[in-house]
Simulated scan of single mutants.
Amino acid sequence: MDVATARERLEDMLAELDRSIGVLQGDPVAVREHSAADAGSDLTDADRVQAMLTVATAQRRAVIEAIKRVEEGVYGRCVDCEKPVPEGRLEARPEASRCVGCQGKRERRR
């Protein structure tokens, strides 16, 4: 993927994530008054919203970091081994910062 296409996709992703985060942060479950009967289901809804917000925020960070790599001229290189990140991986995950091998190692360490 060429750098201009990557940047455009990343900026589109960032805009979409910002919209999603805004919706999640303004979720009416968090601000409406609850009856005692609804407390259990509302907690589940609030937990679900918080989980989605956590994932969206982490992905937003990854997209911003990818945009920085574009600006620095190192986009498409693994941040660990500096080898090229496969084209297919960047097509599927434009925010990817690691090659498949290094990403696998990182996930196994967790």
Rank of each mutant, 00 (worst) to 15 (best):
M1R: 11
V3A: 04
V3L: 07
T5R: 05
T5K: 05
T5I: 12
A6M: 06
R9Q: 11
L10K: 12
L10T: 09
E11Y: 00
E11H: 05
M13E: 15
A15K: 15
E16I: 00
E16M: 00
D18I: 04
S20M: 02
G22H: 11
G22C: 08
G22M: 10
L24F: 09
Q25M: 12
G26F: 06
D27E: 13
D27N: 13
V31D: 15
R32E: 15
E33G: 15
E33S: 15
H34E: 15
S35D: 15
S35W: 06
D38L: 07
L43W: 13
T44R: 01
A46E: 07
A46M: 14
A46V: 15
R48V: 05
R48C: 01
Q50N: 14
A51G: 07
A51Y: 04
M52V: 05
L53W: 08
L53D: 09
A56E: 08
A58H: 01
A62Y: 04
A62N: 13
V63S: 01
V63F: 04
I64T: 09
K68V: 13
E72I: 02
E72R: 09
E72V: 04
G73T: 02
G73C: 00
Y75P: 03
Y75G: 02
G76R: 10
G76I: 07
G76L: 07
R77T: 09
C78F: 06
C78M: 02
V79S: 08
C81F: 03
C81P: 01
C81W: 02
V85A: 05
V85R: 02
E87I: 13
E87L: 13
E87D: 10
E87T: 13
G88C: 08
E91T: 10
R93Q: 06
E95V: 02
A96H: 02
C99E: 07
V100W: 03
G101C: 03
C102P: 11
Q103C: 06
G104T: 14
G104D: 07
K105M: 12
R106C: 04
R108Q: 14
R108G: 10
R109V: 06
R109Q: 12
R109C: 00
R109I: 06
R109P: 00
R110V: 10
